[in-house]
Amino acid sequence: MRRTSLALAMVLVLLVAGSALAGTATGSGYQRRGAPGRNAELTSTPLIVPAGVTATITDVTCDGDGFWIEGPVSASFSTGAEAIGFRLPSGTYRFYPNLKEGQFPQQKAMVSVTATWP
């Protein structure tokens, strides 16, 4: 009886510890076209991956022409779908959308990136 209780308590501790490590985080970015050095705007709310884990990008919403990542790992993507599955080691990441060019250039864009870890 005592061994069963001890084994059950150990399993419970392992389950609680494992679920405490699991997580989800979201970061976002915004770009507004303007005169360089005057009123253009580039801002980001960072996504933080805790020490000791690697997160995987699971969702991206982007109304620009793709986006780029700045952090311990940097990358750029032509579409949000292209980034799904990309892995982010622990650290702080910032995301910025690319503005669409062409005859009628896009004036502002945003990106939101969600990543999860086990």
Score class of each variant (00 low, 15 high):
Met1His: 09
Arg2Ser: 14
Arg2Asn: 13
Arg3Gly: 15
Ser5Glu: 14
Ser5Asp: 13
Leu6Cys: 08
Leu6Phe: 12
Ala9Pro: 11
Ala9Phe: 15
Met10Tyr: 13
Val11Thr: 13
Val16Ser: 07
Ala17Tyr: 04
Gly18Trp: 06
Gly18Ala: 12
Ala20Leu: 15
Ala20Asn: 09
Leu21Gly: 09
Leu21Ala: 08
Leu21Pro: 04
Leu21Val: 13
Ala22Arg: 07
Thr24Leu: 14
Thr24Tyr: 15
Ala25Ser: 11
Ala25Gln: 10
Gln31Tyr: 06
Arg32Val: 04
Arg32Glu: 13
Arg33Lys: 10
Gly34Ser: 10
Gly34Leu: 12
Pro36Val: 14
Gly37Tyr: 10
Gly37Gln: 09
Arg38Leu: 13
Asn39Trp: 11
Asn39Phe: 13
Ala40Arg: 11
Glu41Leu: 15
Thr43Trp: 12
Ser44Val: 10
Ser44Asp: 04
Pro46Trp: 02
Pro46Ile: 06
Leu47Glu: 01
Val49His: 06
Val49Trp: 08
Gly52Phe: 13
Val53Trp: 01
Ala55Glu: 01
Asp59Gln: 08
Asp59Lys: 08
Asp59His: 11
Val60Tyr: 02
Val60Trp: 03
Thr61Arg: 11
Cys62His: 01
Cys62Ser: 10
Asp63Lys: 02
Gly66Glu: 03
Gly66Asn: 03
Phe67Thr: 00
Ile69Trp: 07
Glu70Trp: 02
Gly71Pro: 02
Val73Gly: 04
Val73Tyr: 01
Ser74Ala: 06
Ser74Trp: 02
Ala75Arg: 10
Ala75Pro: 06
Ser78Ile: 03
Thr79Ile: 03
Gly80Glu: 00
Gly80Tyr: 05
Gly80Met: 06
Ala81Trp: 01
Ala81Phe: 10
Ala81Val: 08
Glu82Val: 02
Glu82Tyr: 05
Glu82Met: 03
Gly85Asp: 00
Phe86Thr: 03
Arg87Phe: 05
Leu88Ala: 00
Leu88Cys: 06
Leu88His: 01
Ser90Ile: 03
Thr92Cys: 07
Thr92Val: 03
Tyr93Pro: 01
Phe95Glu: 04
Phe95His: 04
Tyr96His: 02
Pro97Gly: 03
Asn98Arg: 10
Asn98Phe: 12
Asn98Gly: 02
Lys100Pro: 01
Lys100Ala: 15
Glu101Ala: 15
Gly102Ser: 07
Gly102Val: 08
Gly102Arg: 00
Gly102Gln: 07
Phe104Glu: 07
Gln107Val: 15
Lys108Ile: 08
Lys108Ser: 15
Ala109Gly: 09
Ala109His: 07
Val113Gly: 09
Trp117Ser: 11
Trp117Asp: 12
